[in-house]
């Protein structure tokens, strides 16, 4: 087991113009652990995920992911992380199969893996349909496949179950659940579900860390305050 923390943030700060989206966020996540990021809309959850995903560069503070400092070693990190973002990141006019094969090629993964994944989320039948014709839940299942194509060691999940019914949620569990062994960062509007999965909770309020600690320590009052 890797002894280095999978994610280490020290004083992470990011501005958008004069607005500060994140200020002084520090957290350590052990390899294989799950971090839940909570906060109201605009608290900085998505910004944090995009920085971890190397899509945004930090303005101050230190970020190190899987032992690699960002943004300098972004290239090395990219191969090892999977992002399930708000948008599915799929082309609407291509079929699910074509989309996944495209991403598989970008990541240097074979078509066998795509077939397996489609099978596991029960999307074989609709794999040839253009993505624009699929329901939101189906698109989300494809997006999960896309995020885990290359078996990433770090999963960044933005509202992973937002549009999935319980049955579909079951289906993707082996891909993005705890069983994968990957380090996970989960954001959610629904704090109770996310907290139940988490080893560590980071509460953000207006870009500032309002709570960092194990989920047991987070009591109802603090939770309410996060969303106030």
């Amino acid at each position: 087991m890797d002894q280095r923390p999978a994610i280490e943030l020290r004083g992470l700060t990011r501005h958008f113009g004069e607005r500060t989206a994140l200020r002084g966020v520090s957290v350590r996540v052990a390899a294989g652990a799950t971090l839940a990021v909570l906060g109201h809309n605009g608290a900085g959850k998505s910004t944090l995920l995009r920085i971890l995903a190397t899509l945004l560069r930090p303005h101050a503070g230190e970020v190190s992911i899987l032992g690699e400092p960002l943004p300098r070693r972004g290239f090395a990190v990219r191969a090892k992380l999977g992002l399930l973002a708000h948008e599915p990141l799929l082309y609407r006019d291509l079929s699910g199969w074509e989309n996944l094969v495209y991403h598989a090629r970008l990541h240097g993964v074979g078509e066998r893996r795509v077939e397996e994944l489609l099978e596991s989320v029960d999307m074989r039948r609709r794999a040839e349909d253009p993505v624009r014709l699929l329901s939101r839940g189906m698109v989300q299942r494809l997006a999960v496949c896309r995020a885990v194509l290359h078996k990433p060691a770090l999963l960044l999940l933005d509202e992973p179950r937002a549009s999935l019914d319980p049955a579909a949620s079951e289906l993707v569990e082996p891909l993005i659940g705890r069983g994968t062994g990957a380090t996970r960062v989960i954001t959610s509007h629904d704090p109770s579900a996310a907290v139940a999965e988490a080893d560590l909770v980071l509460g953000l309020k207006d870009g500032r860390p309002a709570f960092v600690g194990p989920p047991e320590k987070l009591d109802a009052r603090e939770l309410r305050e996060l969303y106030a």
Partner: peptide, 17 residues
């Protein structure tokens, strides 16, 4: 336009390419 509206930029940037 497709890259911008359907997340193609992000998906491309996430790949080690």
């Amino acid at each position: 336009v497709a890259e911008r509206e359907q997340g193609g930029f992000d998906a491309f940037l996430l790949a080690p390419v």
